[in-house]
């Protein structure tokens, strides 16, 4: 783990362009299925949200032409990929790599915020609760998606590892350093 936050990679323009043409309904269904799996495997994440577990969060990868609307629904989450400005209780914006790095614990949320790599709007308490709950859950999105993709999971994990090495984007939870 680095001692300082590295430069945040920006999503290539070609990928952003591709997303402009991608139908969002299947993306939303896949993301919702993934979030439900996470809810089953990490119930503590939604417990930690407490009074904010029924708020609506807009996750805005600033380098992509879509936003994600996350509704935890008290542990029955729903995720929608949307184009254009969407309203929610709290909005967390930043490069996709920063948002993924937060999920995987690669980056410190406050440090990203102090450096203006991350922008919080709306209900700050809800955004903070989500950040803290996700930080505690020790998620690995690549493992979650791979588990849903059998029999291709092994191939998928290899592809994720390759993409992570090439792009510097945190696509999986980093391996833990040896204990002191």
């Amino acid at each position: 783990m680095p001692h300082t936050q590295p430069q945040i990679p920006i999503c290539p323009a070609a990928l952003a362009k591709l997303l402009r043409l991608t139908p969002l309904v299947p993306v939303s269904l896949s993301l919702t299925a993934c979030s439900r799996r996470i809810a089953n495997r990490h119930p503590g994440l939604f417990r930690r949200l407490g009074e904010h577990s029924r708020k609506r969060f807009i996750l805005d990868p600033a380098d992509l032409p879509v936003v994600l609307c996350l509704e935890p629904n008290g542990g029955q989450p729903k995720v929608r990929a949307l184009r254009g400005r969407s309203e929610g209780d709290a909005r967390i914006s930043g490069p996709l790599a920063a948002l993924l790095g937060l999920v995987h614990g690669t980056y410190d949320g406050d440090a990203l915020f102090f450096a203006r790599d991350l922008v919080i709007e709306g209900d700050t308490a809800a955004a903070l609760a989500l950040r803290n709950a996700v930080d505690d859950a020790e998620l690995d999105l690549s493992q979650e998606i791979a588990a849903m993709s059998a029999p291709f999971s092994r191939f998928l994990l290899r592809a994720v590892a390759y993409a992570q090495r090439r792009t510097g984007v945190s696509l999986a939870r980093p391996e833990e350093e040896a204990a002191w």
Binding site: M1, G105, D108, D135, D136, W180
Partner: peptide
């Protein structure tokens, strides 16, 4: 205590 586990790990290693 309000900071992430990433922060905690970095700072603790440094001070240890």
């Amino acid at each position: 205590r309000q900071r992430s586990k990433s922060y905690v790990a970095q700072v603790v290693r440094n001070f240890r």
